[in-house]
Simulated scan of single mutants.
Amino acid sequence: MRHVLFSIALSLVALPSWAAQCGNRSAGFDAWKASFAQSAQRAGVGQRGLQALANAQYATGTIAADRNQKSFRYSLDKFIEIRGATTIVRQGRERKARDAAFYTALEQRFGVPAGVIIAIHGMETGFGRFMGDSSVVSAIVTLAFDCRRSEFFIPHALGALRLVDQGSITAATKGAKHGELGHTQFLPGNAITYGVDANGDGRVDFYNQADALASTANYLRQKGWRPGQPYNKGTHNYEVLKTWNAASVYQESLSIMGAQIDG
């Protein structure tokens, strides 16, 4: 947060040349959506995805959150305190012991230690207790329209619409403020690319814990994770952790908590 090749979406990084102009407030959002719908249709988005796009609302809460990302300003100690690292480690150890067979199978398949996956799960949603209260489609479409990082979010907006087409989410599905979804808060384009059907029910559901955690492990492995090697700061695998979240305090916290959970 992932099966359809992302190349179609990535080919649209230059999409603003096709679409209406981006904006920094709600004015122009509907006109942009209408233009983007034509581009999305050319990229293979179907009727359900296009309808979800048409119904998307400008997400003022998402814009406010994007302008005020506090994690980048915290020290490591402050971030660890605020995120409740001690509780995550304690509960993470309990979860690993309780579901040992699942986490062992996950590591055997993808090579990513249980501690890392559990730490991400705990950090992102408190082990699934809160997966967000914002419309995934509206949030990600708003960010694709917003001039601040439009090119980054356009492929993820296309991913969200394709997830609607596939039935993995609906137009009403709730996620985080930046459109991240499920147990480990995948961005929709990454969900399309790296999703794994771990429970074998024929669909990838990021609100199903097994699918979400397997997809997380698959994401890290595909980003270059080297099984059996350390992941503390300065290592190759630590560089892979950086691809999960841009905040350095987040990356370092994951490496610390993962090691404590596995220790």
Rank of each mutant, 00 (worst) to 15 (best):
L106V: 11
L106R: 06
Q108D: 14
Q108K: 15
Q108H: 13
F110G: 00
G111K: 02
G111C: 00
V112I: 06
V112F: 02
A114M: 13
A114I: 11
A114P: 02
G115P: 04
V116K: 00
V116L: 00
V116P: 01
V116T: 00
I117L: 03
A119W: 00
A119P: 01
A119N: 01
I120Y: 01
H121A: 05
H121R: 00
H121F: 15
H121S: 08
G122M: 05
G122R: 01
G122Y: 00
M123T: 13
E124Y: 01
E124K: 00
E124H: 02
E124M: 03
G126M: 05
G126Y: 05
G128E: 05
G128Q: 08
F130M: 08
F130L: 09
F130G: 00
F130Y: 15
M131N: 09
M131C: 05
G132C: 12
G132T: 05
D133V: 10
D133Y: 11
D133L: 10
S134Y: 15
S135C: 11
V136I: 15
V136Q: 11
V136C: 07
V137I: 14
V137K: 06
V137S: 04
S138A: 14
S138L: 10
A139Q: 11
A139F: 13
I140G: 08
V141D: 04
V141N: 05
T142F: 13
T142Y: 14
T142V: 13
L143V: 04
L143C: 10
A144M: 06
A144L: 04
A144Q: 07
A144H: 05
F145N: 09
D146V: 07
C147W: 07
C147R: 08
R148I: 04
R148P: 02
R148D: 12
S150A: 15
E151L: 13
F152Y: 15
I154V: 15
I154P: 13
P155G: 07
P155L: 06
P155H: 07
P155D: 03
H156E: 09
H156C: 07
L158P: 07
L158E: 03
G159W: 09
A160T: 07
A160Q: 05
A160M: 10
L161S: 03
R162T: 03
R162S: 05
R162N: 02
R162K: 14
L163N: 02
L163R: 01
V164I: 11
D165G: 04
D165Y: 10
D165W: 10
Q166S: 14
Q166M: 14
G167P: 03
G167Y: 03
G167S: 04
G167V: 04
I169V: 14
I169L: 10
I169N: 02
T170R: 12
T170P: 08
T170C: 11
T170F: 09
A171T: 11
A171H: 06
A172W: 12
A172P: 02
T173H: 08
T173M: 11
K174M: 14
G175A: 11
G175K: 12
A176C: 09
H178Y: 15
H178C: 10
H178E: 13
H178S: 14
H178P: 05
G179P: 06
